[in-house]
Design a binder for these strands. Structure first.
Length: 555
RNA sequence: GCGCCUGUAGCUCAAUGGACAGAGCGGCUGACUUCGAAUCAGUAGGCUGGGGGUUCGAGUCCCUCCAGGCGCGCCA
């Protein structure tokens, strides 16, 4: 990536100036390259000479002179300027810029990839809701964020695994089983009472009716204790199929669905308990077994085995993460959590230490919760009453691409409002369609060109000299940097802004530059512009795909 | 009370400690007789919640106050 090249060249120039005695010896700070807000100042700028002023005890302008003197003029560098109070501004050469179009065309859909991850194995776990019903709308942000991040990390050179954690053990699962049993019995006409605290909602009744239709009434003829786990698992299969369908309608496909129950069946729970006991991290209080998280800096201790003998969720979490790191060997694990789980982060970090693992290898990515609105009014949800809005409803109402774009478009730290009416109302003129329109428009131009017998074959990209052409190329070249920024900061929302900028750059190019012309005199520039349009289509499609959206040929 | 997050244009939100704080929507004014007007151009709109501090330089870091969200269970 050109940015890295320039960064290295500047750092080398500084060191060379030091060796030659033009600058005093001091430790060179990290060279930061940024994009100046004013285009006249060039493509890249660095304030590094300002930072070095104190170290060198020289005026920043003078330092900059010495650095620029030692900066090799590679082909990509067009102009280098020193600006008050000590910035170095670099403008890319036009020749090099236009050549990048060929580069993009040759590389294709993988263009923009970088090697930040160096093949390290990272797991992104997201969407892991309790499998007791369809995905709630609140989990929309979770899966969109997790999947978008996974895409970004894959593009940044990590080996990524996408995982869904199936919470198929524990008391809430038993309660779900009792609910299924009651609904199943009711579906077959028996007057079975609804369990205390059971799961309301029409979908469970529907699954129970399906099971009754598929399996008949045989489970009513066996003891309730025997029928419960069977119906629980039949129901679980229905829920998981439903959840899978929900996420797949957003274009999300998991690599692995990991069952919590297997942690117990395959002995990992026992193993971590042994480990924790050996580390002296366990103690008993009031009949329960606790994890001494406060000994490792957490604010509270946590129950592992409740006084009724049942392991709590945290025990599973420890075994689960032991499995992720020790058994499966992930270098890095990212769990995507809503802000309502934020308080557990210190105990997760304590757990890593207790397992002898570097806490840095576990990232808990916390996003703030979504407020659902309809026409400016907050939609109040009551899980207890079964008044939930499902993710499915939102997808059906707004469309999968718009759901992904909107939910991805805010930083994780931003509490966001999702106004359904607004999302639909804007459907003509919202950024989702703005970006997709640009792609469809290019596709249309390329189709038109083909009809007219115009071809990019043999096009000379060095003819691309119009400011709008160069601006479009510059915008395309930013994708690797956007991917890097999104990967480093775990902030895939940058993609949504970049996509709009890229689309805008194309629309401006379209306004200013005729691609397919009937004038024979334009044949040469037309071929070059077809190359540019093709390249822009590639980069736009890539960006849309990174966001999990479709790149339509027409709309 | 304690912890985490947030407060930026009328609304929804961007901005790796760097130069004059940006975008979309909404408002106003313009542009389709050759490639898609779901587009483009122009314009109005800000003491970045208040106050201190660190820094050559702060929307960004620290302290404090105010306001909002989420936690603080032998639920997950």
């Amino acid at each position: 990536m050109i940015k890295d090249d320039l960064t290295n060249l500047i750092a080398q120039a500084i060191k060379k100036a030091q060796r030659k005695g033009d600058l005093p010896k001091f430790e060179v700070p990290e060279v930061i390259l940024e994009h100046p807000k004013q285009a006249e100042r060039g493509d890249y700028a660095t304030p590094v000479c300002l930072q070095m002023a104190r170290l060198a005890r020289m005026a920043p302008m003078e330092i900059a002179k010495q650095v620029v003197k030692r900066l090799p003029r590679i082909e990509a560098i067009g102009q280098v300027e020193i600006a008050h109070p000590g910035y170095i501004n670099i403008t890319l050469s036009q020749q090099w810029l236009t050549q990048q179009v060929e580069d993009i065309l040759a590389t294709g859909e993988t263009w923009g990839n970088i090697n930040l991850g160096r093949g390290r194995k990272v797991q992104v776990e997201y969407g892991s809701a309790n499998p007791t019903g369809p995905l709630h709308v609140g989990f929309g942000r979770n899966v969109v964020l997790g999947d978008g991040l996974a895409n970004v990390l894959a593009a940044a050179g990590y080996e990524v695994q996408r995982e869904y954690y199936v919470n198929d053990a524990g008391t809430q699962m038993d309660l779900f089983g009792e609910t299924m049993y009651a609904r199943y019995a009711q579906a077959l006409g028996r007057d079975e009472p609804f369990p205390e605290g059971g799961y309301p909602g029409p979908y469970i009744e529907e699954w129970a009716r399906e099971i009754a239709a598929e399996e008949g009434d045989k489970y009513l003829h066996m003891p309730r204790e025997e029928a419960l786990p069977i119906l629980r698992d039949l129901g679980l299969a229905k829920v998981l199929a439903c959840i899978r369908e929900d996420v797949e309608s957003l274009g999300i496909y998991y690599d692995n669905w990991f069952s919590e129950r297997t942690l117990y069946e395959e002995g990992y729970f026992d193993r971590i308990m042994t480990l924790l006991r050996q580390g002296d991290y366990l103690f008993t209080r009031e009949g329960a077994v606790w994890f001494a998280a406060t000994r490792l800096g957490a604010d509270k201790d946590e129950v592992l085995i409740r006084s009724n003998g049942e392991p709590g969720y945290f025990a599973s979490d420890i075994a689960y993460h032991y499995h992720k790191f020790v058994v499966r060997g992930f270098d890095w694990v990212i769990d995507v959590w809503g802000a309502d789980h934020q308080g557990h982060v210190p105990r997760m970090k304590a757990m890593m230490q207790a397992l002898g693992l570097d806490p840095e290898r576990l990232t808990l990515l916390i996003y703030q919760l979504v407020t659902l609105k309809r026409g400016g009014e907050v939609v109040r949800l009551s899980k207890r009453k079964g008044e939930i809005v499902t993710l499915r409803e939102i997808i059906d109402e707004v469309g999968p691409d718009a759901v992904r774009f909107f939910l991805l478009s805010r930083s994780v730290d931003s509490q966001m409002d999702f106004d359904l009416d607004l999302a639909k109302e804007q459907s003509e003129r919202n950024p989702v369609y703005y970006v997709q329109y640009a792609h469809a428009r290019i596709a249309s131009i390329l189709r038109y060109a083909a009809e007219q017998g115009a071809t990019a074959e043999g096009g000379d990209v060095s003819l691309l000299t119009h400011p709008s052409e160069l601006a479009l190329i510059r915008q395309m070249l930013l994708l690797p940097e956007v991917i890097e920024q999104a990967a480093l900061n775990l902030a895939p929302h940058h993609l949504t802004y970049y996509a709009q900028d890229l689309a805008a750059a194309f629309h401006v190019f379209y306004r200013d530059c005729r691609v397919v012309s009937s004038d024979p005199a334009d044949a040469e520039i037309s071929r070059a512009r077809l190359k540019l349009a093709q390249a822009a289509k590639t980069v736009l499609a890539r960006t849309l795909h990174l966001m999990g959206m479709n790149a339509p040929e027409s709309m």
